[in-house]
Amino acid sequence: MPRLEPPQRLPRIISSPGSTTFNRTSSWRNLVPRIDLALCTGCLLCWKFCPEACVGLPGPKPEIGMDYCKGCGVCAQECPAECISMDQEAEA
């Protein structure tokens, strides 16, 4: 009887969970969000509405993960304190 190969040696037909994080989608971005934390009330709507799941909650105030932000501007549009501005991305 041939010995069965361990699963990791099988052809990679099964995707690894949550593995798209290798793909830094920041290169899609034309506009870049900037949070003025002095004005931020910590309502966390930016975290809730982010389509990229890239707004982190390191503490009571949010932090945008710039490796993945595509610059859609939903956070800036929805922020009730209007403390997020969308600036032109610097030329690479």
């Binding site: 798209t20 290798f22 830094r24 989608t25 899609w28 990229e52 799941a53 993945y68």
Partner: peptide, 9 residues
């Protein structure tokens, strides 16, 4: 997770 292929917004 982040890094997915959806369009902006």
């Amino acid at each position: 997770r982040s890094g997915h292929q959806a369009c902006q917004g």
